[in-house]
Nucleic acid binder design. Structure first.
Length: 588
RNA sequence: CGGGGCGUAGCGCAGCCUGGUAGCGCACCUGCCUUGGGCGCAGGGGGUCGGAGGUUCGAAUCCUCUCGCCCCGACCA
């Protein structure tokens, strides 16, 4: 049996100054972990115990649909070059050389390695479908690790990969994962939502994220309380209230207006007394592609037009340009391309214009479709234009959805107002397609003896994120409490006085009995004042505490529920069944 | 990578501006005391002041460089 006096649980009275969010503070204060370097942590006894519980739940559920592998974290350059990601991943990938000078990297995910196994060892459709997974350390050289375990450079991920002969098979594998993920997160005691997600730069047809709402999250999720629609802001759409267009001024042709030093939509709207909704804003970007197949890196100017009061979502913009990274144009590039400084940029005669010999792309947000007589920049310093109508006043390359959805806008499904809230991603399921299999040359023979490329899915769960999210969801100013299924211990037995023989004897007996009933219990046998033991117990995430005090003489102990603060006197004879009921109620 | 901040004992901080014996609280060790919410008293240990260089009779303090960490942004399958 675990006795607190023998364990290393370095609790802290004060939170380290570096910690900002609740989970970060409490993981440190509760002695779950210690930091080694930016985004790199050592998990101590309690932290590791909780991580193992989470991983075991994931393993148990994944074993029902797939097979566990253990793959190398150290990968050869070859496979990553074959998939094209050696270049694509850029600075985000840790790279190193061995003594012979051979390039290696630390794997961020394992599409390549898994697909390589398929290439070498799968020959026939009869061997499909396959679902392979692993629970292992992943490495990403994040530009900015933050918020404790929320965003780190070394972390534990369950990632699985499905291989099917056709789309229908992929649908099944994908669905299996969705259901498995729901079981996993339910068992972990998390409140989560499933959202439509951006499929990312790597293509792929469908993807969903499992998100936990928390202020500490880094993602934004739009959701509808009425019909359940939920989507990552990178993907979310909404219905907009109709807007009244301005009447045509003068002859209806674009008309120059002198607007000295009026550079922002806000100023312009005031200056001309028009609503921002009748403005069209111009955003200038450069899309970049890393070197590929021996070709050098390249860049293309991209101009996006949005309604004046709308915000551009860069992920949506990047989504229009496969595998590209986008960055705002720099001042000198803007001058060169538009012939005017930022603040006066507009759409006229842009299509086909080149910057450094590369033709620019003109994109207009779908919210402007059908609008007319808008105000925009004139590509001339200190001038704007009235009467600008897309496709009439200027040519464009593409109508696309580029804007951020705003809170209160209409749900795309049912028109009710949407809410937008922060969330953290704990899992992601993703129909990948044939990209990797193709790139690595994985082929199998189908029924007709024809070579076909299997179709893949990839599915991830962040183990640390589950712990982090659980703490974010369950804490107060004294500490936190974890769902019993993932707590390092489910119960701590606390004798009020370690020197009271009767109390200690009863505590030992109770702890022993609970342990033999399969409850994860520990005994706080420290010779400390009760106040201190309570404070520690409140801090470290154990959901239930049994106080063994003076009433042992009457065979009575007190059961304390951390989440509610509720205390109940229970007869020692009934303690085991009582605790079992509490623990199972919250799902073991 | 841009902006901001911080590195002094395990944790939280003061000292720096105005150079002169390195401090406080908690934690830790010893003893006594205490035992239902971080108890009290007494004694004690623990520091390359992130690192290097410079200025100075003398540097935690001033200057230069450097390393690290945190926050905002950028970035993020």
């Amino acid at each position: 049996m675990y006795r607190w006096s023998q364990l290393f649980i370095p609790t802290l009275r004060d939170a380290p100054a570096d910690a900002e969010v609740a989970s970060h503070k409490y993981l440190l204060r509760a002695g779950y972990m210690r930091q080694l370097a930016a985004g790199i942590y050592s998990y101590l006894f309690l932290g590791q115990r909780s991580m193992l519980k989470i991983a075991n739940i994931v393993r148990e559920e994944m074993d029902k649909i797939g097979q566990e592998f253990h793959l190398p974290a150290l990968n050869s350059r070859e496979v990553w070059e074959a998939s094209g990601r050696w270049d694509l991943m850029g600075e985000n990938m840790f790279r190193l050389k061995d003594r012979k000078g051979t390039d290696l990297c630390l794997a961020m995910t394992h599409e390549e390695v898994m697909t390589e196994i398929v290439r070498k060892d799968l020959r026939s459709y009869k061997q499909l479908p396959q679902i392979w997974y692993q629970i292992q350390t992943k490495f990403r050289d994040e530009p900015r690790p933050k918020a404790g375990l929320m965003r780190v450079r070394q972390f534990t991920m369950k990632d699985s990969y499905s291989f099917d002969i056709d789309e229908a098979g992929l649908d099944v594998s994908y669905k299996k994962h969705e259901q498995t993920y729901r079981r996993i997160f339910n068992r972990c005691g998390l409140k989560y939502i499933v959202v439509e997600a951006h499929s990312g730069a790597m293509g792929g047809s469908k993807s969903q994220e499992f998100m936990v709402h928390t202020e500490a999250g880094e993602d934004l999720v739009a959701s509808c309380a009425k019909c359940g629609y939920a989507a990552n802001l990178e993907k979310a759409t909404s219905k907009l209230e109709p807007v009244d267009d301005l009447p045509a001024a003068g002859d209806g042709e674009p008309e120059l207006v002198h607007t000295p030093d009026v550079k922002t939509i806000e100023d312009l709207s005031k200056f001309l007394t028009v609503s921002p909704k009748n403005n069209m804003k111009t955003l200038a970007y450069m899309a970049g592609w890393p070197p590929k197949d021996g070709e050098p890196a390249r860049e293309q100017p991209v101009v996006a037009f949005l309604r004046g009061d709308h915000m551009l979502n860069e992920a949506k913009l990047a989504g229009v340009l496969p595998e590209a990274q986008v960055r705002p144009m720099q001042a000198d590039e803007i001058e060169e391309f538009f012939g005017a400084p930022a603040g006066f940029l507009g759409p006229l005669a842009l299509k086909g214009r080149k910057l450094r010999g590369v033709r620019g792309l003109v994109l207009v947000d779908a919210a402007l479709k059908g609008r007319k007589n808008l105000v925009s920049g004139a590509n001339k310093k200190d001038y704007h234009l009235k009467n600008v109508t897309p496709e009439v006043s200027f040519e464009l390359d593409q109508w696309v959805d580029l804007r951020n959805v705003g809170a209160g806008e209409g749900c795309p499904e049912c028109s009710q107002p949407l809410t937008v809230a922060k969330a953290v991603e704990i899992g992601h399921i993703f129909k990948l397609g044939r990209r990797y299999a193709q790139a690595l040359g994985a082929r199998v023979l189908d029924k007709d003896g024809k070579e076909v490329t299997p179709i893949m899915g990839s599915y991830g769960i962040g183990i640390e994120r589950i712990l982090t999210a659980a703490i974010e969801q369950n804490h107060d100013d004294q500490g936190f409490w974890l769902p019993p299924a993932i707590a390092p211990f489910q119960v701590v037995v606390t004798p009020i006085s370690a020197r009271d023989r009767a109390q200690m004897a009863a505590s030992e007996r109770i702890a022993g009995e609970l342990a033999s009933d399969g409850i994860d219990v520990m005994l706080d046998d420290r010779d400390e004042r009760p106040g201190m033991k309570f404070k520690d117990a409140d801090l470290v995430g154990i959901p239930f505490r049994i106080n063994v005090g003076k009433k042992v003489t009457e065979d009575c102990v007190e059961v304390f529920e951390r989440s509610t603060g509720q205390k109940r006197d229970v007869n020692i004879a009934a303690i085991s069944s009582h605790v079992e009921a509490l623990v199972r109620r919250s799902g073991i």
